[in-house]
Structure formats: C-alpha cells, structure tokens
C-alpha cells in the first residue's frame, strides 16, 4: 500500500482546528431544584472559562419538554449532552467533576 506523504501535516492541522471548533450543548434538568441550579452554573462557568465565544448552550426542563428528553434518550437528570462536535456525549450528574467533563468534552486545558 502506498503511504500518504503528508500524514504529520494533517495531524497538526487537526489539532489546531480543535481549538476553534464550535460547541453545541444541551443541559436537561428536572425542575429548578438546587441540584439543577448547581449544574447550570457549573456548566456556564466551565464554558465561559474554556469555550468563550464558541459555544451555544440550551437548558431544557424535562418536565416542560418531555418529548425532547425522549428524543435524546435522556433518562437521568441532570444530563449534559454534547451534540457538536461529534461524537455525541452525555454527562450525567451534578457536573462537579470539572476535569472529567473537560476530558469528555475534548477540551484542551490552557497551560
């Protein structure tokens, strides 16, 4: 098989692109419980810090919109769904474990 010549270049380019990708996030919560509020603020803080200017976030109350929860197969609350960039990811729980979320969101930490 013929080996591609520009492998390393492609790789570098992809890495660079990653820093500019746009994030579409949805946070599903069950009512305005303290846990919900805690998770909303946690996500907002995180996005402001790491994804400033290139994220979209929508908070959905599953009591109000059960059909949206059904469509996304959300069964736990709170659930943060990363719709873009692919692959789709779901984070359930209070979203307090920042390191884990960042890793899951595939966000490079600034040094």
């Amino acid at each position: 098989m013929k080996e591609p010549t520009n492998r390393a270049d492609d790789f570098e380019k992809a890495l660079q692109d990653r820093g500019h990708q746009k994030y579409v996030l949805r946070l599903y919560v069950a009512g305005m419980t303290p846990r919900s509020r805690e998770s909303i603020s946690a996500v907002k803080n995180l996005c402001e810090e790491h994804l400033k200017g290139r994220y979209e976030i929508e908070v959905i109350d599953i009591y109000q919109h059960p059909e949206l929860a059904k469509a996304q197969q959300v069964i736990a609350a709170p659930t943060l769904v990363k719709e873009l960039p692919l692959p789709l990811r779901k984070f359930i729980g209070r979203l307090t474990d920042e390191e884990r979320i960042l890793k899951g969101l595939d966000i490079q930490l600034k040094d």
Binding site: I62, A76, L88, K90, D97
Partner: peptide, 16 residues
C-alpha cells in the same frame, strides 16, 4: 456515550 460526573437521579425515566 455516558460519563458520570456526580450525583444524579432518574427523573427522566420517570417522566418517560
């Protein structure tokens, strides 16, 4: 697809 990041409940399931 799933990462667990703290406490949660299955309210979504109940609603469904």
């Amino acid at each position: 697809e799933i990462e667990v990041t703290g406490e949660y409940d299955l309210e979504g399931l109940f609603i469904r």
